[in-house]
Amino acid sequence: MSTVYTDIRYGKHERHVLDVYLADSASGAATPAVIFLHGGGYVNGDKSAVTSRGLFQVCMKAGITVISGNYRFITTDPFPAPMQDGTRIIQFVRHMAEEWNIDPGRIAVSGSSAGAHIVLWNGMKGDLSNPASDDPIERVSSAVSAILTFDGQVTKDQYFYKEHYLGDKLQPNICLYYGIDHPDRLEDPDIRKLSYEASAIHFVTPDAPPVFTWYNIDFGPVPIPADTPISQVIHHPLHGYTLKKVMDSYGRPCVFRHAGDPLREGELLQFLTESFREPVGAGSA
């Protein structure tokens, strides 16, 4: 195993820690990097989950450094806190690129479930740096080369499910996500505005990074039957299908896989290799 750094602080909160798995570089050249954020419904989970992912093994074998970070939970810090933590992790990694021998122009993001939506949101938002900030981390670009999501949502808007789902179950923890005390408040104008701002699908542009999105269940019937467990509804391939349609409309690369159309041998590495061909965001570091 190459060099590993654990519990590196990227911010002030106790959850602002990340682990770094430096890839071996025989030539000494700077390596690409993939940042991974764990799942857990925004209320649990840990950065250590990355080592059990197939993507982790793919990256280590291919000489791609992996960084896995924790982020604030919505039990204490609702939206936009987890998204902001995702932004800062990207900026922090690019800020540390020289010390960790990372190519600042070749940084991709990945995540599972809740972590998938955080990285998708950040990737579609593009560069969220603040050149006027007194904090040098905030002045660094948060643009990324590519996005890889696993069982990820593309929206935190309950209205998405009204169109595609025959049941009436709410997304788990959605009140916590918006910091409200009752589901009725989801209809409040200010929460409707937050629902738009929290949903990655609304920020796809002609400049969107390439996306690889994968789901552990088959596409199945749509609209989704009412008796479908809510855990499957929120992780349904419909999310990926919807994302691909929007990405296709802009002519942007999007690989969509699910249990009925599974991952091909070597496909993840091929996607990363192609995505890393053009530097992104390096000039702002």
Rank of each mutant, 00 (worst) to 15 (best):
D227F: 03
K156M: 10
V211R: 04
V204A: 14
L148T: 04
F203M: 07
F212R: 07
P172G: 02
K193P: 13
E138F: 00
V204G: 08
T155G: 01
L238Y: 06
P136V: 04
A208G: 14
S231C: 04
I137A: 03
P223W: 06
V144T: 08
F212T: 07
L176Q: 12
N173E: 14
A226K: 15
H164Y: 09
T205A: 03
P229G: 09
P229R: 10
V233K: 11
V140P: 09
A143C: 06
D188F: 06
F212H: 11
H182K: 14
C175A: 08
I147W: 01
D207G: 05
Q158V: 10
Y196F: 14
S141T: 06
D168M: 02
Y178L: 06
Y177M: 04
P225G: 09
Y196P: 15
S199G: 09
S145T: 10
S199V: 03
E187Q: 15
P183R: 08
T155V: 02
P172S: 01
A198N: 07
Q232H: 15
T149Q: 04
H235Q: 09
R192I: 03
V204T: 14
P237E: 01
T155Y: 00
I230Y: 05
D188A: 13
I180E: 03
S199P: 15
P237T: 05
H202Q: 10
Q158S: 12
S231A: 09
S141N: 08
D181I: 08
P172H: 02
E138D: 12
S141W: 00
P189G: 03
E197A: 10
S199N: 10
D157W: 00
Y196I: 15
S199A: 04
H182M: 04
E138S: 07
P221M: 04
A226G: 13
R185E: 06
A198G: 06
A146F: 01
Y196Q: 14
D190G: 00
D168L: 01
Q158R: 12
A208W: 02
H164R: 15
F150Q: 10
N216H: 08
D135E: 07
T205W: 00
Q158G: 07
D188P: 15
L194W: 01
L166E: 14
E187I: 10
E163F: 02
A208Q: 09
L148C: 05
V154S: 06
S199E: 05
P183T: 07
C175P: 13
A143P: 13
